[in-house]
Amino acid sequence: MTVSLFFQHLANGISLGALYALIAIGYTMVYGILRLINFAHGDIVMVAAYVAFYGAAMYALPWWLAFPLAILLTAGLGMIIERAAYRPLRGVPRIQLFTSAVAVSFLLENLGIVVFSGRPKAFPRPAFLDKPLHVGDVIIISYTPVAVAVALILFGGLLYIVHRTKVGMAMRALSKDIETTGLMGVDTDRVIMIAFAIGSALAAAGGILLAIKFPQINPLMGVVPGLKAFIAAVLGGIGNITGAMIGGFLLGIAEIMIVAFFPQLAGYRDAFAYTILIALLLFRPTGLMGEVEPEKA
């Protein structure tokens, strides 16, 4: 393998990783606060891609209007899901909450099939994301730096919110103890809803990037990236935003590199992430940056 080919693969890996990272952050945020694996997260990704598709292709909106609009609407969807399917279950055993998340995911997928039809649709790709860029011998399409930039900017924004604003402080408090935080005068329901809105908005950004990267969308498109993003979140240490970011990029790069170095394993690419997950859970369940958490009854 030549050096330039290596960098070529690295660029591909980074562009895939940016995607996983964006989706993983939403997973990790919700998990950090509610201790819930929001199983429907991957399907929120799918809905965002469709909303963007309808905005850009059906209503012929320019992309700079269609995409932010899709992100906004998806954030709203995240809030609705939280309000309708998760809030009524506060205080019941967590596994019930997770069952509800599975049901929401199942519902979104089926609704997607009915409303958007099961047939894949071609996603309109903004032309400026298709330009080849030459960096030395390596050719990358302009999508890659844009995706990475989007991921980093949103990541920075999220860090700012979590660490520098009052809502962020409330979120951090919630992740320690919801009840006590409520007693201290924080409107916990509102903060949880905001966390869902932010998480879904990030998922939406990931979904649009996903749709641009593989310019085809279908109602089940979110499931596998969603699962992999969750694995990325576990890899980084679930509940840790920086960890999710790093885990996302690592997973993306690793997936591409495995196939690059062992082409005969290409067919098994999708199994790779799950194998990482199982190994990780065996040997280092806290992930790279997670902290050990005492077992709560």
């Binding site: 819930l36 694996i37 967590r94 596994i95 997770f98 599975v102 596998v224 699962l227 969750f230 694995i231 067919g267 098994y268 999708d270 199994a271 992430a273 799950y274 194998t275 997950l277 199982i278 859970l281 065996l282 369940p285 077992e295």
Partner: peptide, 28 residues
């Protein structure tokens, strides 16, 4: 053997992942 030591939702994801591994193996 690895997964049943995990708590609730982790177990769910690990087994779901395993089920997908089986499917990928069967495709290959």
């Amino acid at each position: 053997w690895p997964a049943l030591r995990l708590r609730g939702d982790y177990l769910a994801i690990a087994t779901l992942g395993f089920s997908e591994i089986i499917r990928v193996l069967f495709v290959n």
